[in-house]
Design a binder for these strands. Sequence first.
DNA 1: GGCAAGCTACTCGGATACACGGTGTCCGAGTGCATGGGG
DNA 2: CCCCATGCACTCGGACACCGTGTATCCGAGTAGCTTGCC
Lengths: 156, 156
Amino acid sequence: MSGGVEWALHCCVVLTSVEEPVPATRLAELHDVSASYLAKQLQALSRAGLVRSVQGKAGGYVLTREPASITVLDVVEAVDGPSPAFTCTEIRQRGPLATPAEACTTPCPIARVMTGADAAWREALRTVSIADLAQDVASTSGPTALARVSAWLTTP
Amino acid sequence: MSGGVEWALHCCVVLTSVEEPVPATRLAELHDVSASYLAKQLQALSRAGLVRSVQGKAGGYVLTREPASITVLDVVEAVDGPSPAFTCTEIRQRGPLATPAEACTTPCPIARVMTGADAAWREALRTVSIADLAQDVASTSGPTALARVSAWLTTP
DNA sequence: GGCAAGCTACTCGGATACACGGTGTCCGAGTGCATGGGG
DNA sequence: CCCCATGCACTCGGACACCGTGTATCCGAGTAGCTTGCC
C-alpha cells in the first residue's frame, strides 16, 4: 500500500481541530515530511471530495464534512485508489483444459475468497471514523494535545 | 499484491488431485503462463514448506500436507511475504510538536486501525483451506473437472 | 538372464535483465488580501 | 472618512524526473531412470 496513506490520515486528524484553512506547507512541516509530495496526497483527498481547497493568500485545506462522517476507508480509497489489491485474471479460461466462458457463471472460487477478505478489510476500515481517531489521540496523548496542534497551525 | 499469488493458488488446487510429482513446466502450460516465472512462485512455496520438490527425470512438486491443513493465507504469505501492507513510520515522533518517545507506550491509533484491518483480512484467508477451494471447484465445474485435470497432468 | 556402471535427459534453484508504479520534485495558473490613491 | 482599482504574495494544481519492487528470463547444479556392456 502507498505510504502516503499514513500522511493523509494524520493530516485529516489534525484538520479536525481547526476551522480555518491550513496550507499544505504548514501540514508538511508539522509532520516533517516532503511538502511537495504531501501536496499530491492532499490533491487526491480534494478530488475525492473529503477536503475543500481554498486558494489565495489565506488559503489551504479544510475538511468538507463532519469528522464523524469521514471513515478511514474513505481516506485510504482516496489516496490508494478504490480498486482491490487482488484482480482475477480468469486463469481457468486459459490453457488446454480451459473451461468455456459460458460455463463461468459464478466467479472463480479463489477470486471469491480474495474478494471476501478484501471486503472484511474494507469493513474494518469503514467502522472507524476520523473523529474516532481524534478521540483516541485525545485519550492517549492527553486532551490538550490536539488543542496545541491547533494553536501551532493557526499562529503564523 | 503480487499477481503470482493467483498462479500459486491455482497450482495448489490442481496439485490436490494428483499424488505423483508434477513439474513446473506442466503446470505452466496447463494454465498458459510463463514457465520461468511460475517456477519462482513454486520455489517460494517450497521454501515455505507447503510443497516438496523432487528432482530427477520424473521430478516435480507435490503437496507436503493434507489439502485441508493448508490455508489460503499460507500460500499468500509464502508468495507475497509475511509482512503487513501498512507500516507505521511513527510520524507522531517527528516535527516541531513531536511527542517524546517515552510517551509512546501504546501504538499510534492509525496504526492500530490498520493492524486490525490487516488481521481481519488474514483471518478471512485463514478460514479457507485448499481443500475447500477444490471442493468448491468440484461443485461449480462438475465433479469430473479435477479428475480430468489429474489425468492430463499425469499423461505424458 | 542378472547386475552394475555409465550416460542421458530431465528436473529444480539461484543469479541476472527489464518494466511499471510509487516517490519525490518542480514550475505555472489562479485567487484573496493588502495597499494606496481618489472622491 | 469611505470606496475602488491596482499590485502582490501566497495558494493550489498538474506536468516532469528518479528509484525500488515486481515481472520475466536464462543458464548452471543435481539427480533419477534408461541403456549397454559384462559376468
